[in-house]
Amino acid sequence: MNDYLLLFRGGNNEWMGTSPAEAQAEMEKWTKWMGSLAAEGKLGPSQPLQNSGKVVTGTDKVVTDGPYMDGRETVGGYLQCKAASYEEAIEIAKGCPILEQPSGTVEVREILSMNM
């Protein structure tokens, strides 16, 4: 088993103007998705992120507000999971409800392991 990091982008703005019932239905999709990962013992740490933050750059350690990007480029959250292969990690990512929204993307990255 390897560790993979899934990075979520986009998929937020579409929720303006939805009803409580629709918001709850969306929430239940996430619970179901994460619940199935948890049940298989594949779910690692996962957290949503605030939209804005600070960026520290270069040797001068310049601090700026940001990163200011288009909403669909900002990382909105991450999830770490276990999978036997990239293929399996991609299958897991395909189940993410964020992909039901046009602007949603999931970036899949393998975490380098210490084993040589």
């Binding site: 709850q24 239940e28 619940g35 948890a38 049940a39 740490p45 996962s46």
Partner: peptide, 21 residues
């Protein structure tokens, strides 16, 4: 903090709708 197997809470039916009212 993170969800453990079998430890993921479910929302009760119509929770969002009832609470929003």
């Amino acid at each position: 903090m993170n969800a453990e197997p079998g430890n993921i809470n479910q929302l009760t039916e119509h929770l969002f709708r009832r609470e929003s009212g």
